[in-house]
Nucleic acid binder design. Structure first.
Lengths: 134, 134
DNA sequence: ACTATTGTATACTTGTATTGTATACAATAG
DNA sequence: CTATTGTATACAATACAAGTATACAATAGT
């Protein structure tokens, strides 16, 4: 869909980790990014699940970026939290068009939306956190 | 934000009017586009307000496209219904960033979102209904 | 002038997805 | 073995999109 607040937070969280070389615990991340602790944890879990962030349990636990900053794009982070960026719902993977009857009409728009969605994804993918940090 | 169902309907309604040379009443539009009458009326009002569609009252009343199809873009229609297409809320006109303190951080992202939003708008503006109809 | 037909305007209801929270659990360093 | 940290699921609140209802205004035809 669009870039939600959650995705926006996710970007700030990764940015925060990218700047702060070394491990950070959730509380510090929450304080630095101004996102509530609970919500930070939720977002962090998604980032861990998609392999952008690594987590460590226990007393000296915390989070850190899982790979070089050149290999983490804005698109990666957004996709980890909200799924693929698409301009319209009819571009989504499991979308079933309720108007399949008038195929000569609906698909025309779908094609355009799809094309633009890819354009946006590519553009977001070109932005790497290595560029953002310096 | 994103292209909502309402905007999607609006596109279909304009497309419907574009194909059907001549005046059409709301009921016919509703039937042809599969959008409920009430909702069609709501959308049509927005299209009239923004000068894309002209309306005529009375017994022989109805709606018709207000200008040549070459001069109506997909972006025009979407904007008429949902406002300017933006990728993130922080690109919106009257948005006040709650993080203005750390300006060296937030504005970096805002700039990128803004740039991509314009890209999408331009792309949508390049699609004219004259191209779609034929 | 009257009436049926059409569009106009505002406000309200409903549905759904985002946003955020609570509770209970699992792993690990010291 | 315990304090500290992350994990997982489910739940609640809010915001916004989607759709509806009611009352009103304008006009063509008679």
């Amino acid at each position: 869909m669009q870039i939600t607040l959650e995705a926006d937070y996710a970007i700030r969280i990764v940015y925060c980790l990218a700047q702060n070389a070394g491990r950070m615990d959730a509380k510090s991340i929450s304080e630095e990014t101004q996102v509530t602790l609970r919500f930070s944890l939720k977002i962090l879990r998604k980032l861990v699940a998609s392999g952008i962030v690594k987590s460590y349990k226990g007393t000296l636990g915390g989070y850190e970026v899982a790979r070089p900053l050149e290999e983490i794009s804005m698109n990666d982070v957004i996709e980890a939290v909200s799924g693929p960026v698409v301009i319209s719902r009819c571009v989504k993977k499991d979308f079933v068009c309720p108007r399949q009857a008038d195929s000569q009409c609906s698909c025309k728009f779908q094609k355009i939306f799809d094309e633009i969605s890819v354009l946006v994804q590519d553009r977001l993918d070109a932005v790497r956190f290595s560029d953002l940090v310096k």
